[in-house]
Each structure stands twice: as C-alpha cells, then as structure tokens.
Design a protein around this nucleic acid. Sequence first.
DNA 1: GTCTATATAAAGATAGAC
DNA 2: GTCTATCTTTATATAGAC
Lengths: 189, 189
Amino acid sequence: MKKKESTKELILRTASELFQRQGYHGTGLNQIIEESGAPKGSLYYHFPNGKEEIAVEAIKLMKKHLLEGAAKDLEEKDTAAEAFQYHIHKIASDFEKKHQMEGVQIGLIASETAATHESLRNSCQHAYADWQALYANRLIAYGYEKEMANDLAVTINALIEGAVTLALTSASGSPLYSVARQLPSLLKQ
Amino acid sequence: MKKKESTKELILRTASELFQRQGYHGTGLNQIIEESGAPKGSLYYHFPNGKEEIAVEAIKLMKKHLLEGAAKDLEEKDTAAEAFQYHIHKIASDFEKKHQMEGVQIGLIASETAATHESLRNSCQHAYADWQALYANRLIAYGYEKEMANDLAVTINALIEGAVTLALTSASGSPLYSVARQLPSLLKQ
DNA sequence: GTCTATATAAAGATAGAC
DNA sequence: GTCTATCTTTATATAGAC
C-alpha cells in the first residue's frame, strides 16, 4: 500500500511543478498554498527559511525525477545514438501529449537565479553535475573513452536544455525532433 | 557625431540588460527606473501598456544585437565548422571577461513566459525564427542543402542556448568550449 | 515630455490560537 | 502540526503639477 503523501511532500511537489512552469520569481508562495491546498502556516513550519529553502528542496526533487527518467530511457539500447535518440523522443512525445514540460528542465530556475541567488545556482549546478555523470557513464558503457564521454555528456545536456526551451517557445515538439535527427552524427564513433 | 540616447532608448537598454540577467519576473519596474535614472512618469509615457510592452520592445532590441553579433562572427571563414566554432568561442570569451552574458540569450524570458504571457512567447518565437534563418542561410552558403541546413540551424541554436545556461550555472565558460569541440562532428559534410 | 507623490494590489514573512 | 489573521515590503500602475 502506498503511503499517503505528507503535507511537506505535497507542498514540495506543487512548488516543483510551478517553478518549472513559471520560474522562481514567477511563482508566489500564495499560489503554492492555493494550488496545494496546504495552509501558509504549514509552509513556514516545514520550511522555516521560506521561499529559497522550498526552491532548494524542489530542485533536489526535480533532479531525482530527472535522473530516474533518464536512466530508464537510456537502458538496453544497442548503440549510444539509439539510446539518446529514444530519450529525446520520449521528452518530445510527453510534451506533445501534455503541452507542458514535466521534470525535464531546471534551466529556467538556473538562469533566473544564477546572478542573484547563490544557493539556488549551487543546487542547479549539482543537479547538472549528476545528470552529466549519468550521461557520461552510459556513454562509457557504450565504448567511449572517458574524456570524450564527458565532453559529449555536456554537449547532449546543452542540446536537450536548449531544445526544450525552443519547444516551449514554439509550442511544438519539432525542435526536439530536429535535434534528435542530428544526434547520430554527434555520436558516430 | 553619435546622437545622444533618448530616454526611451535608455529605458529600453536598461530593461533589456536586467531582463537578460534576472528574467522578466525577477526584474521590477522600480529597478529599471533606478538603474536607468529615468523617472517613472517617463516610463509610462513611453510605454503606456506598462511592463509587458517594455518587455516586447526589449526582446526586439535583444534580437537586433543577437543577429548583428552572429552575422559578424560567421563572416569569412573557410568552413561551416570554423565559422560556428568561432561564434561560440566569442560568446565564451565574452562571458569569461565580464562574468555575465550580454545579448546572447532570450531563452530565460522565453521559458518564463511561454506558459503565461502569449505576447512575450510570440516575440521570443519570432526572435528564434530570425536567428535560425540567419544560421540556415550561412549553412546553405557553406554548401548545405536546404532541409539539412534548417535542421542544423535549430540544433546549433539549441546547443548554444543550452550551453549558455550551463555556463551561467557553473559560472564558467567551460560548457561552451565542450560544445565547440563537438561541433565539427555535427558539421562534417 | 518630465517628474513626484500616491493609489492599490500582491509579494514574502510572522504571530499566536488551536 | 495546523490554521487564520496580520505585518511589512515591494510590485505595478496612475494622477496631476510643471
């Protein structure tokens, strides 16, 4: 039996969704309260340091989902190109179904806060580091040498972040498919 | 002799810088007033529709600078790979000098407003379209066939947007250099 | 066209009863 | 741990003198 979601988890999940869709500054605590149904008192009980603390925890949650999703997508494919193409196609089809990104992008919060909120910039940096480590390990498993794998991991990470931004802006999965078509030349060993 | 910057231009330039660094919601009109030195009355005189109107104009200005910079970077190189590598290296070294991005990224505003402010999403979409058209035209000049050039233009656009996000987050130009190193395999004709 | 003062709403945060 | 009421600051926006 699945354990019931605690108030803290509920707040965090709601915040995580809103931050991804509207960004850090675009999301108010009042909105988190309203959408989650949790009372404001509870919010400050569970997160005494307020908005910034919620965001740090929300980024950790996004990272967790990000890594789980990516790890699953990259399993059991014959080549690196196939694996990452499948990964990107998955993101694209999810987006086209729901018309919103879900657990694929921390770039918005990262860009917003890089110049002004050191603790959030740091959280995002750690998320990217773990993400890229996962990609690099998969690439090594497909036969790439370590240094090359690291460079490619960064490149694929950038490619996906950028393509997600373009997809949101054009309200279409098409940029993701363009990128996926070009992946094989990047991963031709 | 250079014409003196009008109040309207001053407001727009200041807003454009702040929006790029802190995003749309992270930048208040009061901050634009303070940093530009312009009075609040003037702001609403020149932009009667308030913040959203300023942002639409600011995005147009960013696009202009973006296109001018890119066009210049991509001139007179022997191969497409050389041209775009030079372009990315230029972005990276600019970033390392000033520790902030200047006129390279509209992705932040785009992602922030895609779900909530249709007019801004639209402005960003047009900026990306022009940007990609410039890239595609350069690629065609380097001998690529039209459809391939379009796909590559989208891919390089995504790559740069994503790498800029990673650079801001890690406070380092390194992701841009990683991406630049991988460009040749993408542009091997 | 410029500038200040002000209205009004919303933000983040806190206090204290239960 | 939960909930409401409230404080303070900041946001966007306006009015009206000059």
